[in-house]
Design a protein around this nucleic acid. Sequence first.
DNA 1: CTGAAAGCGCTTACAG
DNA 2: CTGAAAGCGCTTACAG
Lengths: 342, 342
Amino acid sequence: MAITNRLPTITDVAQLAGVSIATVSRVLNASTPVVEETAQRVRTAVDELQFVPRTAARMLASRKTNTIGLLFSEIRGAFFAHLLHGIESQLRAAGYELLIYSTQSDHPIKRKPLGEHNTDGLLVFTASLEKEELRRLNKINFPLVLMHQTPPEGMNIPVITIENKDGAELLVSHLIEKHGRRRIVFLQGPAGHEDSQWRERGYRDALESHGIPFDPELVVSGEFDEEQAFAAMQKLLLDGIDFDAVFSGDDDAAIGVYRALKMTNRIIPDDVAVVGFDDVQFSRYISPALTTVRAPIEEVGREAVRQLIRLLNGEQAQSLVLMRTDLVIRESCGCGPKEVNP
Amino acid sequence: MAITNRLPTITDVAQLAGVSIATVSRVLNASTPVVEETAQRVRTAVDELQFVPRTAARMLASRKTNTIGLLFSEIRGAFFAHLLHGIESQLRAAGYELLIYSTQSDHPIKRKPLGEHNTDGLLVFTASLEKEELRRLNKINFPLVLMHQTPPEGMNIPVITIENKDGAELLVSHLIEKHGRRRIVFLQGPAGHEDSQWRERGYRDALESHGIPFDPELVVSGEFDEEQAFAAMQKLLLDGIDFDAVFSGDDDAAIGVYRALKMTNRIIPDDVAVVGFDDVQFSRYISPALTTVRAPIEEVGREAVRQLIRLLNGEQAQSLVLMRTDLVIRESCGCGPKEVNP
DNA sequence: CTGAAAGCGCTTACAG
DNA sequence: CTGAAAGCGCTTACAG
């Protein structure tokens, strides 16, 4: 099932149009003025042969791939769809191709999946690239932009991230001030995940500023994952730990929290208030509607592309873009109509 | 901000190892046996120089891109994340790269985004590629696999899709038989969307086999989209059309239906039963929990990759893979516990 | 404005 | 098992 008739090349076009391949290249790329009449002949030949320049040849000759790579750990959930949508749309507008790679694929990696050998620059989400490789790429001045992750010591790589700490602090303060909660569980994300670390800091600061002592018993791991959060909550319940609210780390984990609480007949928010983070698609539709923090995920993707393109154009990129988050009060915290008819 | 020191090439490696570039290529690709001692020297040189072969050069010389392309119309919602996850994981296992392109990006396309010039084969979701281009690619024997879309007349291109009609028929029959509904609205998907067409057929067949006359007034467009579905429902309500159930086309649209009904104080399922299609992440968590049809989306992605790889290997692909769907009864149809504590 | 030619960095018959 | 050489299909100085 191989390609049957050899595909046309630039040489075929040149012959048909009666010009040199250099001229064909020029009209294709509009890189140098070409007499209109000649250009027209070339275009006709291109159409007739249905010629499309081989990307590989073009990349090799021009020493540019016109492609950017996206590295991330996991394709999952609404969060990822939002991020990718932002990246893709912004990238197309700039005329770049997108190569994606999920480091979660546990198949042994022979070659470096994405790097200077196949892209002009890289977008790196959270800790999807080892520090080693990051350092190497940075050292050779390879264009990089990090998302939701600050660069290791001494590396100056642009970062796009969100106001995790402020959002979390507002959220937890709300539980304390408006709803009088004092025994608030925090479900951490994956180890080393910066979003989680900042959110935890916001959580702690909120406690501290309200004179509530930090209780390590109330901080457990939910991994930003429904199942893990469910398991963590079950353990907390079994251990008989006392609490009146849960900050689930992110919205996905909140689903697991809901399940665990409902399963043991706790009423949300009366018995236990629950809040998340991200405000993904389903958050407003679950019952009770989830109080959370809106993270501008799609915009993070867009902005990351913008900064990367600056680097690709030899311009300065902004070293840190911190996008604002907003509290979204719904019902799971204890506010609002208890499902009157939203 | 250009790459500072020239990147090492195969020639640098060859010199350092004291062999020809052909030998370096051979140990890198394990394409021909090389004396172990020599191979070792090459590997050492590769490590020392941190050499990674330029993808473009390799593609050009080998006349293979080792890349497959994914074309689809819209990156949106949980549906897409599931599909992409299936595709990505299966592709990595086979050692291919993934280039993605969303035809929705309304930026004028200069060059063909994905095709024989930059990929070895294409995965095409729904109608994301014009019939013209499909015919052209098929004619030159370019490996193609379609998802959720049968090929135009006379083209033999493998298809992976799901049992839309059976699923829809079961769903609607359930509404009729178990819940006595007879005025059932159907919300169509985008024009020309095959999933929608088959679901409509299932809907009609269910009506017919239960002796319920088809009423064109009850069929309106929801576009598989929350907002469109919301608008369509509002219009139906305003027009005073009488109905006792809604088959929303897909789960995303069901959200819009919920909103419109709740806004006008209709109780789901008592006043109006609602059912969806797909069983995406949020479906079990909305209130009332959505009765729907489970579509094995991730598996569709996996299977599409499997078939495409067969073609790439010169093997025969299965011309049609029809994946089964299952009815998922929850509460929005009128069954089950009215939120006892799921 | 246009062409001849070098070069991009690999792979792969072809000899040996 | 290994090397010299051709070739993959473009782009881009360099002349003219």
